[in-house]
Nucleic acid binder design. Sequence first.
DNA 1: ATTTACTTACCGACCGTTCAGTAACCATAT
DNA 2: ATATGGTTACTGAACGGTCGGTAAGTAAAT
Lengths: 216, 216
Amino acid sequence: MSHAVAQSKRKSPPRWKRRKAARPAEIVAAALEVFVERGFAATKLADVARRAGVTKGTVYLYFESKEALFKAVVRETIVPVIAQGEALARSFTGSARELVERLVREYWRLVGETALAGIPKLMLAEAATFPELTRFYYDEVVTRGHRLMAGVIERGIQNGEFRPVDVEVAAKLAMSPLMHAVVVRRAFASCMPEGFNVRNYLDTHIDLYLHGIAKH
Amino acid sequence: MSHAVAQSKRKSPPRWKRRKAARPAEIVAAALEVFVERGFAATKLADVARRAGVTKGTVYLYFESKEALFKAVVRETIVPVIAQGEALARSFTGSARELVERLVREYWRLVGETALAGIPKLMLAEAATFPELTRFYYDEVVTRGHRLMAGVIERGIQNGEFRPVDVEVAAKLAMSPLMHAVVVRRAFASCMPEGFNVRNYLDTHIDLYLHGIAKH
DNA sequence: ATTTACTTACCGACCGTTCAGTAACCATAT
DNA sequence: ATATGGTTACTGAACGGTCGGTAAGTAAAT
């Protein structure tokens, strides 16, 4: 017994560390993964905790409930992307068609290829269950995203690059193939052994879209 | 007592009816609604049963399990739509661009505006949970749908209506704004009090798409 | 020695699933 | 027409596993 005690006092590395500052972000990151894989209802907090390297109790030190954790995941992960897109549009000096292409590719780089790709799917699946969060997402992500793209289209019409189409709708149509691809790609990944040719998809979309909206 | 007996014998309507033939379809219809509203995991079979006008036990007379019910919902509701689209394409005699427009509008009429609109959302949300069903859906709906549209695009390129673009990708791009709209519209219905202008969306998509793919 | 981040063991509600019992229906007889 | 007996579609209550949430206890840090 005294031997065991001596050993534990002298050498054994601590079984866990106290890392108050880092836990919330780690738990949110783990939760994002599991929520995306399983959906909200089917996600077990014990799984989230294990993936974050803690136990269930610790999750409740930092988040009031499963629902609160879910909201934190959505709020903290997706909003920064929109802000980044807005900043890009503000500082851009080229033509409208160049900016459309840039925004499309940037969306894919920041969302399509990262863990964030799961957020749109999650929101669509759980929208009915969390009206308040859905409103938040709609206002802070969907609407801001549309306004961003609509401003670019508007600019293109003003300076004669684009035909005078419905600006709001044209903005949605620039993004919807992307949003859809982001969601579908993961859902059917196992059904497409050859993979999804992203480059080709983006290139063709940009080509068709810009041809479609261009003047003559 | 004898009074009550007499009454029950003579007039009181039965508390329930035996309707073996009609039950499965009614349960599937009710299940479609609830699954779409709540998602698979959050759906209670008691709710499905109540909406179908039966009790939980009855559901188990006709379906082995919750999962079997879910699969029945997907299989029985969506496949007929694809077959209908294929039949339309076979019998169509006009130009490729007219057929593209027709298929787009038909998809919206048969899926977008009906209870079927919930199926794509369901499949996306639950794909990870039901690999086997996902494969079925991918083969019998997604792939068949793409093949259908790809054939039309191919035809348009052959006869000089369309530019020589990547056929597979162009087919996906013709449908993705629709699929996305179907899913998004319901999810954010409560956030769009003014509603979603379907006519405008479809018109603009068809206009932009056909302009984009047309030969000069 | 004290504080507190973290673990562990537990509770209680919920819900899929089961099954014994019941009521509707039907065939046959009176 | 009414009664009787048999079949089965349907009900309803109970079971048992699962998981969100809680709180007592433990170990890291200072």
